[in-house]
Design a protein around this nucleic acid. Structure first.
Lengths: 209, 209
DNA sequence: CGAACTTAAGTGGTCAGACCACACGGGTCT
DNA sequence: AGACCCGTGTGGTCTGACCACTTAAGTTCG
């Protein structure tokens, strides 16, 4: 089974076969996948094609290779992909605007999720953290993103934030006071006020630049 | 300049060199990059290493290759990366919940962006499209995502939607009527009503399942 | 016996060369 | 002028050869 995937590009077939293979064998992050030579044989393709597929998956952060040992499935978290995409062609100005806007939207979404799902204790913990520590804008929203239960949303925030950070130069600081006001509304689970406060924060940032 | 990037992996050096090369020459999406053989010579590495780099970038959706013609910089939009990541290892159940929630958040964000930035004519066009055509839920929000000015947000929606589609089985249909109500509020730029309507839509979906 | 060393096999990393399939452009024939 | 043909360049793929490194089995020696 699983032969001509008609992709016309062998290395894509390999990627596909690898995927189904991993699924079928129930391989998990950390597990080892067959060696390049074995894959080459089993799939009846050249080793170079196998390598093209593996290198691509490696750059995507899906696998990890260790010379002399083998190739392993990676816990899909950090992506080199980010730094790449970010610096590759962000000469476009429109993209930067989109980045900032999107980051703002995501940050609000994170706050909404917290308001909707977080238990009181989690919010208290967040407030206590803000009181005790010094932090930058980025730190703050990283904390917020991490605090919210939705890991995917956090991940998206991280990515968008990386992009945005790489392509803008604003490192304005919002007063700690403002953030504490924001959190106060979060505690009250007053979505409208949270959003309003957030928006005024944003406005201050762009002003001070 | 730009030689030993010490990455230990040649193909990563190639990626890096390629990046700086593109930047230095001011190449833009659509432009052609040097041939594999030329890169191989210029960088003094094997052609196979060049290919590993190019295939990786191709899978990332950063470049496009056309047999017999050459390799071109791609307008960063669709990624094969999506289908990949999505189906690669999403055995985690929590992820599915996050997917759906995130998609919903993004969809609302798209609507917000439209309300905030779209000109009247764009909205009218959207409404006319909805009147004249038959569409699924996915079609509708794809259209919405495409309509909003923020390309990045559209891209994120596409990604999240692909994930979500691949891991859930709901294909419930919301009545056309409901969508037209939604759009009516968009026309009035009444954000609160739009959100409220959207939420009731979502609720209907999960009910009917 | 156990610790240290040696060795062989396996794995990824890289290169060179050979073909193939396809696209394009210039030249030729009608 | 139009249709055709073929050379050149490009990506696509395979093969075979080394190299560097890891691991574990086997061997030697204290």
């Amino acid at each position: 089974m699983s032969k001509q995937h008609s992709s016309s590009k062998v290395y894509l077939d390999v990627v596909e076969n690898l995927r189904t293979m991993i699924e079928a064998d129930g391989l998990l992050p950390g597990d080892k996948i067959p060696s390049e030579r074995e894959l080459s044989e089993r799939l009846a393709v050249g080793r170079s094609s196998v390598r093209e597929a593996l290198r691509a998956l490696e750059l995507l952060g899906l696998i990890e290779t260790r010379r002399g040992e083998g190739t392993f499935i990676k816990d899909f978290q950090e992506h080199k992909l980010v730094e790449l995409l970010g610096t590759f062609f962000l000469q476009n100005n429109k993209v930067n605007e989109d980045l900032v806007e999107t980051r703002n939207l995501i940050e609000i979404d994170c706050l909404r999720v917290i308001i909707a799902h977080a238990i009181d204790d989690e919010i208290e913990q967040l407030i206590r953290w803000a009181e005790k520590n010094d932090f930058s804008d980025e730190d703050f929203f990283l904390k917020v993103a991490m605090c919210n239960r939705n890991r995917l949303l956090e991940r998206i925030w991280r990515i968008v934030n990386s992009y945005a950070k790489a392509s803008t130069f604003s490192d304005t600081k919002v007063s700690k006071q403002a953030y504490e006001t924001l959190l106060e509304y979060v505690r009250k689970r007053d979505e409208n006020q949270v959003v309003a406060t957030y928006i005024s924060l944003i406005r201050n940032m762009s002003k001070s630049e």
